[in-house]
Design a protein around this nucleic acid. Structure first.
Ligand SMILES: [Mn+2]
Ligand SMILES: [Mn+2]
Ligand SMILES: [Mn+2]
Ligand SMILES: [Mn+2]
Lengths: 216, 216
DNA sequence: AAAAATTTTTAGATTTGTCTAAACTTATAA
DNA sequence: TTATAAGTTTAGACAAATCTAAAAATTTTT
């Protein structure tokens, strides 16, 4: 079994390894809000437990065992988020911090029953896929909204930024999961994007567009 | 805010102070599965935080602040137990350990929404009362089954022992919450009790009878 | 290819919660 | 009322996770 802290490291290494592999010490330090020296200590420990392959000065990669542990935490995180939104009427911007705590509850029975209670959801409130108990999940194919051209159409299926201010902003603009959008114009001056949604035209900054995931 | 460990101490002091006040160091040590020396250290810390009144060699009493914190943890513990039984189909002997972890999740919104989702339950799966958000709850009046005389009748409204083996045993005998019983005989030899329940006669040991709570 | 900048690791402390062993206080018994 | 037992606290140590400051390795720049 891993400690609360070890679980957090595994999860963050998992998320970062999508972007770069192996994962650098400083990248972890920044995400986990700690100092590089502390990360080095933990990497040695995770390496001793054979959860990561660690090469001094080079970075870390999850082992199969570490990857499975990480995915299991992600599974729990996302199932709890679904629970909070579907059953307790949380908004999608309110769930993340609570799920950060709930994901560490240790009970296989609990999580399997929760999955069943929620009727085996495939995605969480931010459009992220929920792994099954074996760690398998279908990768969702999407394009970032800032990559679309004028007249391109699609459906909002996810977000790549989970902060409350960002999600509240999207909500206010009506940019929620499942909404159909069409790019009506891309403004030369600042790269901002004009969208058609629900018959209205709205303008969003390029920065916001980057974090909206679109599927056909 | 209190740490996970501090919360456990507060809760256990709260439960023990029903039996004896002030609460002794060794009593806490035994419940928390630790050594008396560790308890002493923690009592000093809780005293510094004004959560307990602590007199060296005499024991501890919860302050108002400490009592409120403790009741809040009990509230969370019991609400989670209801959730596990009512929504996730846990048995009453399976909930305690998971609730021990869930009770430490820090989110007022979560617990108020959970309470609402469960439709404001008044008792948990073991018949224990659930405090409201101000810490108030109605004390449930009961007699221990071993105190009843022959021909006394009543309803099972609670248990004073929460271990899985004990609860499974009761379940097998059909001695669950809400069941009506009548004492048909008390065996001289070993003090065991014969009960009428659902038209059948069953015999339970005095030790088991002690932990079954009966109301009129 | 050496110098400078960046990144990472080590060394030594610190905090939280725990432990053992010894000392001390209180309760019980002769 | 002194002796003994039981309960509690202190002293000193330890493991987990963190930190700062300094040293070492790697990468980038000149
Ligand atoms: Mn989240
Ligand atoms: Mn999510
Ligand atoms: Mn319980
Ligand atoms: Mn209970």
């Amino acid at each position: 079994m891993q400690s609360y802290t070890e679980e957090n490291y595994l999860k963050i290494i998992y998320h970062l390894s999508v972007i770069s592999n192996p994962v650098q010490t400083n990248a972890i330090a920044e995400k986990i809000q700690t100092k590089a020296a502390s990360v080095t200590d933990m990497l040695k420990k995770l390496s001793d437990k054979e959860l990561v392959d660690y090469v001094k000065y080079q970075g870390v990669t999850l082992t199969e065992k570490g990857k499975l542990a990480a995915i299991n935490i992600v599974r729990k995180h996302r199932l709890w988020e679904v629970f909070l939104v579907e059953k307790l009427n949380f908004k999608w911007d309110e769930v993340h911090d609570v799920a950060e705590e709930l994901e560490h509850i240790k009970s296989t029975l609990l999580i399997e029953r929760l999955d069943e209670f929620l009727e085996f959801p495939k995605v969480d409130p931010h459009g992220d896929p929920i792994p099954d108990q074996h760690g398998n999940f279908a990768a969702i194919s999407f394009v970032k909204l800032n990559r679309l051209k004028v007249n391109d159409k699609g459906t909002i299926t996810g977000v790549s930024e989970h902060s409350s201010p960002f999600l509240k902003h999207l909500e206010k603009l009506g940019l929620t999961l499942g909404k159909k959008i069409e790019v009506s114009e891309i403004i030369d001056f600042d790269g901002s994007v004009e969208l058609s949604i629900d018959g209205n035209k709205i303008n969003i900054s390029r920065e916001v567009a980057k974090h909206i995931l679109i599927s056909k």
